[in-house]
Amino acid sequence: MMNNVVETRGLTVRRGRRTVIDRLDLAVPRGAVVGLLGPSGSGKTTLMRAIVGVQVVADGTVTVLGRPAGSAPLRGRVGYMTQQASIYEDLSVRANLRYFARVRGAPAAEVEHVLERTDLTAQADQLARTLSGGQANRVSLAAAMLGSPDLLVLDEPTVGLDPVLRADLWDIFRGLAETGTTLLVSSHVMDEATRCDRLLLMREGEVISDLTPEELLESTGAQSAEEAFLSIIEADAADAADAADAADIGVGTASTTDAVGTSGTDAPAVRAAGRPTSPEVTPPGYRPRHRRDAVPRSRSQGGRDGDVQGEETP
């Protein structure tokens, strides 16, 4: 019996010539709400697509519930909520869910159940086109919940929602986790980090930290999750820049020069120099690739990665 719902080994994803995810090792334990946080373009959506099995993977393996990601038996056990609502605008909410339930092989009664759970009963007969963004989002979530999947992969489920709706959704997530569902939730709203059991912080296709919200705050000494996150991202960016500089002037450590020599890509290749060799990521897994001071830097210093609130495009 495996304890990890998701395991990746050396996962590499390329989009065009760009390496979006570079040799990623990752483990997600069962029955938790795992937050996948990172700035825009850090590879969160790509990683989720790889876990669901709809992403072309260049190298490495992704194992979900003990099977290769995307294999036929998993399609009924993994629920996926894409970033856009992904529902039929010209069908009513109920008709949308009925259709997805029939495709999933879930009993029709479950439609009413998920409607209730996502607080959409009042909108059930409305055409999806007429819904607000938040309502459409919840229909999408409801569709992903059909068939009681063991793993729910939710890509920015709370984006564009007001704080009240966001809190409601997190209550739903918590409730699902309590019934044994594992949730992988991406977000770039850092305040949501504190609602997760575990956090995976991503930057440029790499998981730079794997820790609990408490550890995040403790290790950085920051007041809020957002501040803590920024300090980690900026420290990481600075490390990457240092490594690049060192390599440029030829005084880098052996591993740095080696990494530059073996790989033709830009930043990810350079950063690979400091990659931990052990795939172990069990908490407390805060894994700095170089020693760094945990004091938050000034925002201006990390300017190029300051856009943590931006929209992520896949």
Binding site: G53, G76, T82, Q83, Q84, S86, Y88, F100, V103, R104
Partner: peptide, 16 residues
């Protein structure tokens, strides 16, 4: 719209 991706991540045959 992403509905095809959603369907293909479900137990949906391409033939279906």
């Amino acid at each position: 719209s992403g509905t095809l991706e959603r369907l293909l991540s479900m137990p949906m045959g391409r033939g279906d």
